[in-house]
Amino acid sequence: MRLRGKVVVVTGAGSGLGQALALELLRRGAKVAAVDLREEGLRETQAQAGNMAPGLSLHPLDITDKARVAALPEEVERAHGQVDGLINNAGIIQPFKRLLDLDEAAIERVMRVNFYGTLHMTRAFLPRLLQRPEAHLVNVSSMGAFVPVPGQAVYGASKAAVKLLTEALWAELQGTPVRVTLVLPGAMRTGIAQHSGVEAPRAEGARVPVLEPQVAARILLDAVERDAFRVLLGQDARTMDLLYRLSPLGATRLIQRRMAHLLPPR
């Protein structure tokens, strides 16, 4: 879907990749409905938009609030007259703990934001997207959806759920005006740990190039414009995808060896 002249909803648009996506969409001539839990983040996105800000509307809300999400499509249409795309980007990580050391509140929060937030937004906007001549749905999953990371079991499970949901939607929406893209990012400089309230230690001996969100946004939106089914963001994501295809056990062992030290002793 060509993005010029389209209206695209972006969640998590107050920082990181979501903010970079909102700004890059505006540069490409799209209008953007920016969604984020933090209004101050949305105001920062608006400030960075500069003279492109008239094409931007701000929608502070919690994507786990079903009633608020259900009212959002009409709100976006009032602001822009239509909606042609949805990028489900908002997400959080879990504390770096083993599954049995996580409290129930942390488990439920990760699933509510990452999976149910994506699900609620998709169900709210999909009827509108199906009415457009062409439209696009983008779900941001994670490299952690196919390579398990010790200390991020619930996060990985939530993103794996997003991955399979997205692939199933691609199949279900064949023959409709809606195209679907699955995004699998690796390491990015997004501030996700800070906004999740989590301290994120570094893996020992890892020399992983960290992708800047502005670069990731351009790659992602190029993929949308060519209606790509799947896009891997970052050299680490591409490398681990290949390794996992060749040897799931080998890929899992590699990550375990690099990340196991992040967990406290049993």
Score class of each variant (00 low, 15 high):
K6E: 03
K6G: 00
G14Y: 00
L17H: 01
Q19I: 02
E24W: 02
E24R: 09
L25M: 06
L26H: 02
R28N: 11
R28P: 10
A30W: 01
A30I: 10
A30K: 09
D36I: 02
R38I: 05
E39V: 08
E40L: 12
L42D: 01
T45N: 02
Q48R: 13
Q48G: 09
G50H: 12
M52I: 04
A53I: 03
A53N: 01
S57K: 06
T64H: 14
A71Q: 08
L72I: 13
L72N: 04
A79V: 08
G81D: 09
G81I: 12
G81L: 06
D84K: 05
N88W: 08
I93L: 12
Q94F: 05
P95R: 00
F96S: 03
D101Y: 13
A106Q: 15
I107E: 08
I107A: 12
M111D: 13
F115Q: 08
Y116H: 04
T118Q: 10
F125L: 10
R128P: 06
L130H: 12
P133E: 03
H136R: 11
L137M: 12
V147P: 04
P150A: 02
V154Q: 07
S158P: 00
A160V: 03
V162R: 05
W170C: 08
E172S: 13
L173C: 11
G175K: 09
G175W: 15
R179D: 08
V183N: 01
L184C: 15
P185W: 04
A187D: 02
I192D: 01
Q194A: 14
S196A: 11
A200E: 07
R202A: 14
A206H: 10
P209Y: 15
P213K: 15
V215M: 08
R218F: 05
L220F: 07
A223F: 06
V224R: 03
D227H: 14
A228W: 00
V231W: 02
L232F: 13
L232E: 11
L232N: 09
L233P: 00
L233M: 08
D241E: 07
L243S: 06
L243A: 13
Y244K: 13
A251I: 09
A260T: 02
R266K: 11
